[in-house]
Design a protein around this nucleic acid. Structure first.
Lengths: 112, 112
DNA sequence: ATAAACATATTGGTTACCCAATATATAGAT
DNA sequence: ATCTATATATTGGGTAACCAATATGTTTAT
């Protein structure tokens, strides 16, 4: 039992739960500005597994292209910052998400 | 304001929230056996929009192929029933899902 | 200077999800 | 019988998310 095993995980193999990567990224960025590797780490903590660079960077590029995030360079690190449209969009997305899956959370969430 | 507008909707355009279709189907089937059109209607209520037949039926086929659901025909209706592996799998998936998105629910869910 | 470590990024290939449009099959009504 | 409504299903085309592997910069340490 290593340190890595303490967080979340238990990824189900019954149905692949792909999706919501961009949504998760935007949500993480409401907490603070992060650079790529930081996002990868936080996504790993959330979902039990770090996304591949070939998954993460194209997603970030797309979010930037859509104007939802902006970037700022500090040394070799490239920080991603929520743009105004990203800020409003993610709230809308979170509300939609919580409405859609409310019943599942009522049954399986909350406790522990 | 038609009847249809009363349910959920407000689908965000900031980030496409594709995904979790198979997961949602399995979860709906924990409630009761359903046939295709019934599932389409329930998914519509959840997500604000009915999935296309070209989306739904291949997903159902795949779930059957994987042995997660079984089918039973009644007239022209084909009922989908959770198989044993689907029953245990969906619980695991729900728990995983609730762990991953717990913080988002804490912030945006619960009330109303 | 150069090696090691860190960080970003791309390539090539797969799968799940998404649509509009169309096709097939069954049941019920006239 | 045949028309209508219901239900299942496929076709063809697109995007987001996923991976392993590899490549390219940039800082830091020696």
């Amino acid at each position: 039992m290593t340190e890595k095993d303490e967080c979340c995980s238990n990824i189900p193999d019954c149905c692949d739960m792909r999706g919501l990567l961009s949504f998760s990224i935007l949500w993480l960025l409401t907490k603070r500005d992060m650079y790529g590797q930081e996002l990868a780490e936080e996504l790993g903590k959330m979902r039990g597994k770090r996304p591949n660079p070939g998954t993460l960077y194209p997603a970030l590029k797309e979010l930037e292209k859509r104007g939802l995030v902006e970037t700022r360079k500090e040394g070799r690190k490239k920080f991603y910052v929520l743009a105004e449209s990203g800020r409003t969009g993610v709230v809308e997305a979170c509300e939609y998400f919580c409405t859609v899956y409310a019943d599942i959370f009522r049954e399986y969430g909350a406790d522990e």
